[in-house]
Computed example of a mutant assay.
Amino acid sequence: MNTLTRTKGIDNLDDHVDDEIAACLNLKAPRSFFLFAGAGAGKTRSLVTALHYIQKNLAEQLRPQGQQVGVITYTNAACDEIKRRTSFDSLIDVRTIHSFSWSLIEGLNRDICNWLLSKLSDDISQLEFEESKGRKGTKASVARQAKIESKKQRMATLPRIKSFNYSSTGDNRRHDALSHAEVLQITTHFIRTKSAMQHILIGRYPILLIDESQDTNRELLDALFSVQSAFQNKFILGLLGDMMQRIYHEGKEGLGEDLPQDWATPEKVLNHRSPKRIITLINKIRGTAGKQQEPRSTAPDGVVRMFVLSNRHTQKSP
């Protein structure tokens, strides 16, 4: 094998991955999947490629049923980018996790009220128990009593609220508004406990793709796993991520491990972005995780520069 053929083979290592994902996106034989893609591997490109496949091959099945493909990603900027790359097609519903959650529970005012009454009652009971065991007159005691009073006041106002409101980008300080945390908690509870909510979810989104899944709220993700398990023949859950790039503590530990045997687990190993020395360092850091990357044939070696200055210098040039 000559050098040109060998390097071309390296650059084509991941060509099969998008085909594997496309094979999962079969509404007659649905298959959920977890795509591992490390830094610079082109995870978003694979997500957009999958959406283009859906637009071309599944639109005629989904649109007449009023169904969409749900996409959850982490930031509004990422939402806007994916919408742009899919031509702002209404078939593709791209949202942040909070916006997605609110879209499921908005208008369920009585159920939301009942959940809040139960949650506030539990919170008050816990705070009163802690207060009974704590020292009176301390800052902690004063803070607990303030929280108890605030929660009691909120409980008193709930029966008068006709409709709850929420903004995924606002501070939600109105008396009829829900907090960001409450929206996630309520959605998770409804998905876990309400059969109607499960059917609303899979009826609206027979395909749900979650970008940066390593940072997705673990409780909500577990609830979605339970729906996928119960409706394997009607619901495709596609996760894209890399546990080594996890930033937020609310993500699910060990995501990608111990998946159901019928899940597909495509993996991208080519790093399109980094010089070879950076990839060598990444692989050493990833050593215990068993996930290694390869550089492109055209990747530069990279340069490391170290500057050593005396700490006696009061001014240092940039």
Rank of each mutant, 00 (worst) to 15 (best):
78 A>R: 11
16 H>Q: 05
93 D>Y: 08
199 H>R: 14
26 N>E: 04
254 G>W: 07
184 L>I: 15
189 H>T: 15
108 L>C: 04
80 D>G: 05
91 L>Q: 02
143 A>I: 10
297 S>R: 04
250 E>Y: 13
137 G>R: 10
144 R>P: 03
177 A>M: 09
304 V>A: 09
201 L>N: 01
91 L>P: 02
235 F>H: 04
221 L>K: 08
71 V>N: 02
187 T>S: 05
257 E>P: 14
228 Q>S: 08
140 A>H: 12
289 A>W: 07
77 A>I: 13
76 N>Q: 13
115 W>V: 01
134 G>S: 09
244 M>L: 12
29 A>E: 10
211 D>T: 02
190 F>H: 08
316 K>N: 15
44 T>D: 04
141 S>D: 08
168 S>H: 15
164 F>D: 02
37 A>F: 14
204 R>M: 01
88 F>R: 08
157 T>V: 14
282 I>H: 09
308 V>Y: 11
79 C>E: 13
195 S>F: 05
149 E>W: 11
87 S>A: 10
200 I>M: 11
88 F>N: 10
170 G>A: 06
193 T>R: 15
310 S>R: 12
75 T>L: 11
176 D>P: 00
184 L>D: 08
235 F>C: 04
20 E>F: 12
108 L>Y: 10
47 L>W: 05
26 N>T: 00
193 T>H: 15
189 H>Y: 14
8 K>P: 03
166 Y>P: 00
86 T>A: 03
192 R>P: 00
118 S>L: 12
12 N>D: 07
264 A>I: 11
185 Q>I: 04
176 D>T: 09
185 Q>C: 07
198 Q>I: 09
147 K>F: 03
263 W>Y: 10
63 R>A: 01
317 S>M: 04
29 A>P: 02
226 S>T: 14
136 K>C: 11
144 R>G: 01
311 N>Y: 09
129 F>N: 09
237 L>G: 00
272 H>T: 05
205 Y>I: 00
134 G>N: 07
113 C>D: 12
146 A>E: 11
149 E>T: 08
232 Q>S: 11
298 T>V: 14
312 R>A: 09
42 G>I: 02
239 L>P: 09
109 N>E: 15
71 V>A: 01
210 I>V: 15
282 I>V: 14
275 P>T: 05
21 I>W: 05
38 G>S: 08
121 S>N: 13
45 R>I: 15
104 L>F: 09
220 L>D: 03
275 P>G: 00
153 Q>L: 07
205 Y>P: 00
246 R>M: 06
235 F>Y: 08
79 C>Y: 10
30 P>G: 03
55 Q>H: 08
25 L>N: 01
307 F>Y: 15
162 K>C: 09
25 L>H: 05
98 H>Y: 12
101 S>I: 00
176 D>N: 11
